[in-house]
């Protein structure tokens, strides 16, 4: 008899837990959501100001402007193919932040400007990339 009750308890506990996981999935914390949409620049116009989103792209060359008042603040253009969106970022810039670097930013789209509070650069390609360096020479030249 008790075994049945225990099994019912176990099943209810699991059910409650799954309900909880589902609840968090579909009602994330508004202030600090764990689930963020990754958006392409084409769909940017449909985003409301209150929604926290992510954008990925390339820093358009020559667009980086570091604020005179606060060295931690900068503006740059984030490029995705033909489209570019102005981005404002306040915080420590990663080591690999420079022209043409691939970056992912997270924040809000306000008044046609993306205000980011998180910025990541894609990892250095040195360790997966081309082996050629200045001391390499072609086989034919030997």
């Amino acid at each position: 008899m008790n075994q049945k009750k225990i099994i019912i308890a176990v099943i209810s506990l699991s059910f409650l837990s799954f309900a909880w996981i589902g609840y968090v999935t579909f009602n994330p914390d508004q202030e600090n959501p764990g689930m963020v949409r990754f958006i392409s620049l084409n769909d940017l116009s449909s985003v409301t100001e209150s929604e926290r989103i992510r954008l990925g792209g390339r820093i358009s060359a020559g667009s980086i402007q570091i604020s005179k008042q606060n060295q931690l603040e900068c503006d740059f253009g984030l490029q995705q193919g033909e489209l570019t969106v102005p981005v404002n970022f306040l915080g420590t810039r990663p080591d690999l932040f420079k022209d043409d670097a691939e970056v992912i930013v997270e924040g809000h789209y306000v008044n046609e400007k993306f205000v980011a509070d998180q910025l990541q650069t894609k990892c250095a390609s040195r360790y997966e990339g081309d082996l050629r360096d200045d001391s390499s020479y072609n086989v034919e030249s030997i």
């Binding site: 999935t25 994330p28 914390d29 959501p33 764990g34 689930m35 963020v36 949409r37 990754f38």
Partner: peptide, 26 residues
């Protein structure tokens, strides 16, 4: 949480990233 980005992209065609706040909250 780990496979959700892949699932959401496959089902809804929209990539959703899942970060630490989700895992902590759950």
């Amino acid at each position: 949480g780990t496979i959700f980005p892949v699932l959401s992209e496959a089902v809804q065609g929209e990539k959703i990233t899942v970060g630490a706040p989700f895992f902590n909250q759950v």
